[in-house]
Amino acid sequence: MARTVLLTIGRLPKALELARAFKNYGYRVIIADPFRWHLTGVSRDVARSFQVAAPADDSEAYLDDIISIVERESVELIVPVSEETMYVTALKPRLDPGVTLFSMPQNLILTLHHKKRFIDFASALGLQVPETYDILDHRAVTLAETTDTVIKPIYSCSGRGVRYLKRGESIAQPPHSEHLIVQRRIEGDLYSTFSIAQNGCVCTTIIYRAAVMSGTVAVCFERIPKQQVILDWIDHFIRKTSYTGFVSFDMILRPDGQAFAIECNPRATSGIHFLKNEDLCTAILHVTGDARPRLRTALFMQQLFPCLTETQKSFFNRKNFRSNLHHLMTARDVTWQWRDPLPLLLMPIMASQIIARSICKGETFGEASTFDISWRERDTQNHINA
Rank of each mutant, 00 (worst) to 15 (best):
M1N: 02
L6G: 02
T8Y: 00
T8C: 00
G10P: 00
A15D: 01
R20M: 01
N24D: 03
N24A: 11
N24H: 02
Y25A: 15
G26D: 06
R28Y: 01
A32W: 01
D33M: 00
F35P: 00
W37A: 13
W37F: 11
T40W: 04
D45Y: 00
A47P: 00
R48F: 02
R48W: 06
F50D: 00
Q51N: 08
V52N: 04
A53S: 08
A56K: 12
D58V: 03
Y62P: 00
S68K: 08
E73A: 01
E73Q: 04
V75I: 04
V75S: 01
V79W: 10
P80E: 09
E83L: 09
E83H: 14
E83K: 07
E84R: 13
T85V: 09
K92R: 15
P93D: 09
P97Q: 12
L101M: 04
F102E: 02
M104T: 13
P105H: 06
P105G: 03
L108V: 04
I109T: 01
T111N: 07
H114Q: 04
K116N: 09
F121A: 07
A122H: 09
A122S: 13
L127A: 11
T142M: 04
L143Y: 10
E145T: 15
T146N: 02
D148C: 07
K152S: 11
S158Q: 03
R160L: 05
Y164H: 15
G168C: 07
A172S: 09
P175I: 09
L180D: 14
L180K: 13
I181P: 01
R185V: 03
G188Q: 13
Y191S: 01
N199P: 01
V202E: 12
T204Y: 00
T205I: 03
I206P: 02
I207L: 12
A211K: 11
M213I: 09
G215N: 03
V219W: 03
C220T: 13
R223P: 06
I224T: 15
V229S: 14
V229Q: 14
V229A: 14
I230H: 00
L231A: 12
W233I: 09
T241R: 12
T241L: 06
T244G: 05
T244I: 08
G245W: 05
G245C: 05
F246D: 06
M251V: 15
M251P: 05
M251K: 11
M251R: 11
I262Q: 01
E263I: 12
E263Y: 06
R267V: 07
G271V: 10
K276W: 03
L280S: 14
A283M: 04
A283R: 06
I284K: 05
H286C: 08
G289I: 07
G289C: 03
G289S: 06
P293S: 01
F300N: 13
Q303C: 08
C307S: 14
L308F: 07
E310R: 11
K313W: 03
F315N: 07
R322K: 08
H326P: 08
D333H: 08
W336L: 10
W338E: 06
R339S: 15
D340P: 02
D340C: 03
P343Q: 10
L344W: 12
L345A: 15
L346C: 13
I349A: 13
A351Y: 08
I359S: 05
C360M: 03
K361V: 07
G362L: 01
F365G: 10
E367Y: 05
D372A: 07
N382L: 12
H383A: 10
H383R: 14
N385C: 11
N385H: 10
